[in-house]
């Protein structure tokens, strides 16, 4: 009974985090982006600096009619948002937030693989949406999504493998247990490659060609309205949370910190994740969208070689110190 309660509690916490953190990131994006552009952003909803703007947006989305285009493949079209969203929920389960086994939804033996695999599945949602919409722009968006995933999954995997090599385990908890501060400079190239590739996989600007509104309207999500559209947006922001959390855990030491790592480890994790989320927003505001061919070139001629170099470096250092 106690076990059941424990599991239920963990699931509940993960679910609550899944529902709130993306909204917090979204609201931060509203405000940070506004101020970076010399604006104020939402100011009215909720009274204090528009804190309830996303809640209001949610209410608006819930009120809208759920339209399925006449020529669309109905079932696939309706299923796509769930396929896009659920993987991120599953990933959150595996991210350790503090030291020990009590601070992770579910300890997984092959955590790195689980997380990357499930994140890759999330892209299937975009593909399904792009194809099922019966809209050429959606199809183009789906194609771009697929091309982007194929190009950027590889550097992500390679750099994650580099960390796994350094730690000698593929378990996220194990990686954190093995973390030392000097991993930071050692794996810095891998960290950057991982983060950039993750951004591309999430289709965040400057890698948002699959939803490039000035070229293909909104890519795979063009035909979506109401709650299903909101689910796609939620998936994007949940993706940011997951990517930042994952980068924190893999490269920035998660709950390790200069002090207080034992009791307040989770604060460190949250802090690092928040800083990374800020960087995600910052990059979005600052840099214009790449062209589709530049995107591919960046991956295959820069990120993949860098990732391989990182693996080589990791291997050499590992052999030297052992």
């Amino acid at each position: 009974m106690n076990d059941v309660l424990d599991v239920a509690l963990r699931l509940l916490i993960v679910f609550v985090v899944f529902l709130t953190f993306p909204l917090i990131v979204g609201q931060t994006e509203h405000k940070v982006m506004a101020h970076m552009q010399g604006r104020l952003g939402p100011m009215y909803a909720g009274g204090f600096h528009g804190w309830a703007q996303l809640v209001a947006d949610g209410v608006k989305f819930a009120q809208k009619e759920d339209v399925v285009p006449a020529g669309a493949d109905r079932r696939v079209f309706q299923l796509a948002p769930a396929v896009a969203l659920l993987p991120y929920l599953l990933v959150l389960l595996a991210l350790p937030i503090g030291p020990g086994e009590g601070a992770v939804g579910q300890v997984l033996d092959a955590g790195v693989f689980f997380v990357l695999a499930v994140m890759g599945v999330g892209v299937l949602g975009s593909l399904m949406a792009g194809w099922a919409s019966a809209n050429k722009f959606s199809l183009l968006g789906g194609l771009r999504t697929a091309a982007q995933l194929l190009a950027y999954e590889l550097p992500m995997l390679l750099t994650a493998a580099s960390v796994a090599m350094a730690a000698g385990t593929v378990s996220l908890v194990g990686i954190l247990d093995a973390f030392e501060w000097w991993w930071l400079p050692w794996q810095i190239v891998g960290a950057i490659v991982f983060f950039v590739a993750g951004l591309a996989e999430l289709q965040r600007p400057p890698f948002d060609m699959p939803v490039a509104d000035s070229e293909i309207i909104f890519g795979a999500y063009t035909e979506y309205t109401g709650l299903r559209f909101a689910l796609f947006l939620l998936a994007e922001y949940a993706g940011i949370v997951v990517l930042c959390g994952l980068t924190t855990v893999l490269f920035l030491g998660g709950w390790h910190g200069p002090w207080g790592a034992d009791g307040l480890g989770w604060v460190w994790t949250l802090l690092k994740t928040a800083v990374l989320a800020f960087i995600v927003i910052w990059l979005r505001v600052t840099h214009p969208r790449l062209r589709e061919d530049q995107l591919q070139k960046l991956s295959w001629t820069l990120l993949v070689p860098l990732a391989l170099a990182q693996i080589a470096l990791t291997g050499v250092v590992k052999v030297v110190i052992s």
Binding site: A110, F113, F114, A117, G120, L149, L157
Partner: peptide, 9 residues
């Protein structure tokens, strides 16, 4: 997980 990563993903 490798099955999911390689085949599904």
């Amino acid at each position: 997980w490798v099955q999911v990563l390689i085949y599904v993903g």
